[in-house]
Nucleic acid binder design. Structure first.
Length: 638
RNA sequence: GGGUCCGUAGCGUAGUCAGGAUAUCGCAGCGGUCUUCGGAACCGCAGAUCGAGGGAUCGAAGCCCUCCGGAUCCGCCA
């Protein structure tokens, strides 16, 4: 808050001055300067004015600063954090805090019990749908990116007081599931994995799914089976459809184990079969027909299908196939309408499972005979965020624009949060026995080109374990494995979140093993250091010595600490989880520099020791928050 | 062909929306800190015509235009 307060103070002065001079329409910035030597905040307002009045930026800046300083001295209150304002020869106007009171203001508010409660979301409801892996295979590293972005977003939006629900969409009625069913029913795969230690999701994905796709090529009869299986799955209410549902659920349970092991959680599972059976599509279909959006083709390549007409040059999009089954688009539109609360809720909710954080994972169902239904309603959120990779952008646009053409809602409420997918580096692909030359390869479950999420986590845990053992020869096994899992999780989570969503991640096994540098464990290390200091030192709450924190490394750390509330506001309003990762890293760097250069417990002056410990405590509090938002465990030792 | 996105040191990456002060951080490389609160750290060196060209501007990595290179989508798969 303190940086925000300082900023507001400056804005107040500037706006008042502009008002007095009857200048409007100036869109100035007031931001962190490139170097601390320029103070806490800097503004480009002199450039803007110089442009408008065709004069020299520096002269404008000097003139402005003179007036601002007079105002400041007239208005300075006891709470005032602003010390001085100066005009830099370059034309920038720099604002400096009063460092007699600034450290105490910042650290004091962090140490206060009310710190860390943000309200930018103001109870607005938001649905985040992520992961949603087809229930016929285990998760691979590509899915990790989706899941972790989604989870960090959930943590941040919840922290700023959005009313969040996390959805996992289970496509249990698609072709992929039919493939597995054909594998079991018609191609002779045993239902249980030959090796009982194999996870069922991995067995289905690595064995059955990959091999059945080969068999289709050799055996056209199987293709026919596949079609008829899909049809009866979609029709429902048969032994075959129940068998398919059982298989999906069994895979899903194993997928969830992977998600939970990374400390990702969900609120609700939605099954496509239930969405189809809910008759919401029939309602949507009527709307589409009434508004002239759906058309029946009597000739051409889509003969016998219902389609949406493509707009400006795009091809038509099939809604209902010639065999009467629904495509993804057709299934997704009524579902979207339900999420937005545009359709009444056809579902009941049953307890599916308890999760690692003791929260309940619910499942939507149409079955009225199952007990323990939820009182709460899902669906009908003010904002719906669908986390899907960028390759689906076009399709998502078709869905949302068609939907908005037939039912009325504000388009911004339904968004596709897009990110670039994860590919495999050629080196890693080669290590899997796939030669793709010097480029990177897209992962494909069907072709068997992927690195499994469970496998990569195992390798990381093992690597972390070795590291820890070399540092702490004496440690109990349970502590050792607990910490190594925390480290592995931190490494993966940080890696998946730290760069821009619009940049693809080329996954390389070797590189992902690094626990140094700009990494999750680096953040944990800084936190653990602060934790050790607080354990050894004696924390007093004598805040009056805080004004002595004038070492350069101290003021830098204090500056970083003051930014949290502006950062989390930006993260949540822009749906940009990367910013939190960047901030956490900057914070850790500032602390490590402080730790290296300034003696804390070794300091001889008692009042300085307590002031420095308070600063360490403040860092500890802010860093713990940041780590929690990122889903990284704050470790006491590592 | 059309749509979307990306080109920043050997590699990866921040900054681009809201133009302004020495272009961020990491990996790899070289050298150092090691009787010092935990070396998963810290310090130093070296490494970038910000894809190319043009334009508007006092000022461009950022804005506009053209081009080049790459990714991806344009299924009765989801």
């Amino acid at each position: 808050m303190s940086l925000r307060n300082l900023r507001n103070e400056a804005i107040l002065l500037i706006d008042k001055l502009l008002q007095e001079r009857k200048i409007d329409g100036i869109n100035y910035t007031l931001v962190e300067p490139p170097s601390n030597a320029f103070g806490e905040l800097t503004s480009n307002i002199a450039f803007q004015l110089a442009q408008r009045f065709n004069s020299n930026p520096y002269l404008v800046a000097k003139d402005l600063v003179d007036s601002l300083l007079i105002q400041l001295s007239n208005q300075r209150s006891r709470e005032s954090l602003l010390n001085t304002i100066d005009a830099h020869p370059s034309g920038h106007i720099n604002f400096r805090a009063d460092w007699n009171v600034y450290p105490k203001a910042i650290i004091g508010e962090i140490l206060d019990d009310s710190y860390g409660k943000f309200d930018f979301g103001k109870g607005k409801s938001v649905i985040i749908e992520h992961t949603s892996v087809n229930p016929n295979k285990a998760l691979h590293v590509g899915h990790l990116r989706n899941m972790i972005i989604g989870d960090v977003l959930f943590r941040i939006l919840s922290a700023v007081n959005y009313d969040t629900s996390v959805f996992y969409y289970v496509d249990d009625s698609g072709l992929q599931v039919a493939d597995i069913v054909v594998g079991f029913m018609n191609a002779g795969f045993p239902i249980d994995p030959p090796d009982p230690a194999t996870k069922f999701d991995q067995y289905c994905g690595n064995e059955v799914y990959v091999k059945i796709n080969d068999l289709y090529i050799k055996n056209p009869d199987l293709q026919q089976k596949r079609k008829s299986v899909l049809k009866s799955i979609e029709k429902g209410n048969s032994d075959l459809s129940r068998f398919a549902k059982d298989i999906s659920l069994r895979v899903l349970r194993d997928q969830l184990k992977t998600c939970w092991s990374l400390k990702v959680r969900y609120d609700l599972l939605n099954f496509e079969s239930d969405i189809v059976a809910s008759k919401m599509w029939e309602k949507m279909f009527e709307l589409l027909k009434n508004k002239g959006r759906a058309a029946y083709e009597t000739e051409g390549k889509n003969k016998g299908c219902w389609v949406i007409r493509g707009s400006d040059g795009d091809d038509d999009k099939v809604l209902i196939r010639s065999d009467g089954t629904l495509t993804y688009v057709a299934k997704d539109m009524p579902y979207a309408a339900w999420k937005l609360g545009l359709f009444s809720d056809p579902f009941l909710y049953r307890v599916f499972s308890e999760q690692w954080d003791t929260s309940i994972l619910w499942a939507a169902t149409l079955d009225t005979t199952v007990g323990s239904h939820a009182k709460r309603q899902f669906g009908g959120a003010e904002i719906v965020i669908n986390l899907i990779d960028s390759r689906q952008s076009r399709l998502q646009t078709i869905i949302s624009s068609t939907l908005s053409a037939v039912v009325k809602f504000e388009k911004e409420r339904y968004m596709h949060l897009s990110y670039e997918p994860v590919t495999l580096s050629s080196r890693t692909a080669k290590s899997l026995g796939i030669d793709i030359g010097n480029t990177s390869a897209h992962m494909s479950g069907r072709k068997g080109i992927y690195v499994g999420a469970d496998q990569i986590m195992e390798i990381l845990y093992k690597k972390a374990k070795e590291e820890i053992r070399s540092r702490h020869p004496i440690m109990t096994d349970s502590e050792l494995s607990g910490i190594s899992e925390s480290l592995g999780r931190a490494a993966v989570r940080y890696n998946m979140i730290k760069q821009d969503l619009e940049r693809p991640i080329v996954f390389d096994l070797e590189e992902s093993l690094s626990l140094d540098g700009d990494s999750g464990p680096y953040l944990q290390y800084a936190f653990a250091r602060s934790q050790r200091l607080l354990e050894k030192g004696e924390l007093t709450h004598r805040t009056n010595s805080l004004a002595n924190l004038l070492h350069e490394k101290e003021s830098n750390l204090i500056r970083e600490l003051s930014k949290m509330d502006l950062i989390i506001e930006q993260c949540s309003s822009q749906l940009n989880p990367k910013l939190m990762a960047r901030y956490a890293h900057k914070l850790a760097v500032a602390f490590n520099l402080y730790y290296e250069k300034v003696p804390i417990l070794k300091e001889t002056s008692e009042s300085l020791v307590s002031a420095r410990l308070l600063l360490v405590k403040a860092f500890n509090i802010v860093m713990r928050l940041a780590l929690n938002y990122l889903g990284i465990d704050p470790l006491n030792r590592m």
